[in-house]
Nucleic acid binder design. Structure first.
Lengths: 204, 204
DNA sequence: GTCTATACAAAGATAGAC
DNA sequence: GTCTATCTTTGTATAGAC
């Protein structure tokens, strides 16, 4: 009985988070109001506060949700760790990127959420500032070495960092003009720029 | 007499725009309040409205200011047009990018403004949506052909588009963590990724 | 768990005095 | 050109009933 109630509450919370994500994608976190969330969920504004405590609390829930949902392509890298399927082999940057793009292409809303929050988090005043900085560091930090398989003379970390930046930039265009830009198709073309072919033969 | 008044008014407007840019960089356009602008300028909130008419009007002034100030690297391309200094020669993508990065490195505030407004403009609800979409199209549109000098077999338009996206991504990291990231130095390294050296010899 | 009622602050905008 | 005064709406948050 208690379990059923808790499950219902969990679902309510999920509804609230979903609504918040939609609104953030339209108006940003600054433009988000608890009343707007309440309206979409179909309860009152104090009803929303009952679940998240405060507006900041709602953002925390949203970020947590994002974190839980969005880290799927990391699975690829795990396959190369000791004791896993591809132990001994090395992951390839282009392959990893392709996987990420493919995945993101089907999660437009989540990609948008990331871009919006990430940009608002540029400002130190943003409640998400610390969180996104830490996250960004993981991408561009030289310490993060996945032992990529790359052609001789190529700096793996540099290439990966640059590729992720280009991906981010392309995502922005795709989000703003989904009808004009084919995210996956465009990325496929960019592979020839980032990983030119005689050189990267066998490393893609 | 009338001219002096007009000059003073023009300066006031500039103060207002400057204040707005600062605040947008901290809180975004959604988080911008006319009162906050008024406080920084040292007049009242209706005083601000007297100059810009409405909040949307203020945004228009800000965008106009950005447009007037931020398009300096286009000068480089003009040098290659008929009747100009480098007529007959061809512009180089890496050189153009280097110029742009160099310029942007000294205009952190303006770069931030662009990223913040550009991201908010992802949403069709944003008052700047149309403006930034048009702008983005100019970067990624195949019609914009500057007759770049590129190595044989290289797709100039594709390379330029990808490079601009990578630059945008790098800018985002630099803006969020200026102490950790050296924008120009990092871009210099990325040149080896985007324009690898045996191939691009003489085209940089 | 959800509601009503309410407090309180801040938003954008207008009217009109000086 | 700048102000005060004011209207109206919207924001976050709390208290307490059901």
């Amino acid at each position: 009985m208690a379990k059923q109630r808790s499950a219902a509450a969990q679902e309510r919370l999920q509804q609230i988070v979903d609504a918040a994500v939609e609104i953030i994608n339209e108006d940003g976190y600054s433009g988000l109001s608890l009343q707007a969330v309440a309206d979409r969920v179909g309860i009152t504004q104090p009803g929303v506060l009952h679940y998240v405590g405060s507006k900041k609390g709602l953002l925390n829930e949203v970020i947590e949700y994002y974190y839980d949902t969005h880290d799927g392509a990391v699975e690829y890298l795990k396959l190369f760790e000791p004791g896993q399927l591809f132990e001994g082999k090395q992951p390839k940057i282009p392959e990893y990127c392709r996987l990420l793009v493919e995945q993101n292409a089907g999660r437009r809303e989540l990609v948008m959420l990331f871009q919006v929050l990430n940009t608002e988090a540029i400002s130190p005043k943003s409640p998400a500032h610390e969180y996104f900085n830490k996250r960004s560091r993981n991408i561009s930090n030289p310490e993060v070495d996945h032992h990529w398989a790359v052609p001789a003379g190529v700096d793996a970390q540099l290439t990966a960092s640059c590729a992720m930046a280009a991906m981010y930039g392309l995502e922005g265009r795709w989000l703003a003009r989904p009808d004009e830009i084919d995210y996956m198709a465009e990325w496929a073309k960019w592979e020839d720029v980032l990983f030119p072919l005689p050189l990267w033969e066998g490393y893609r």
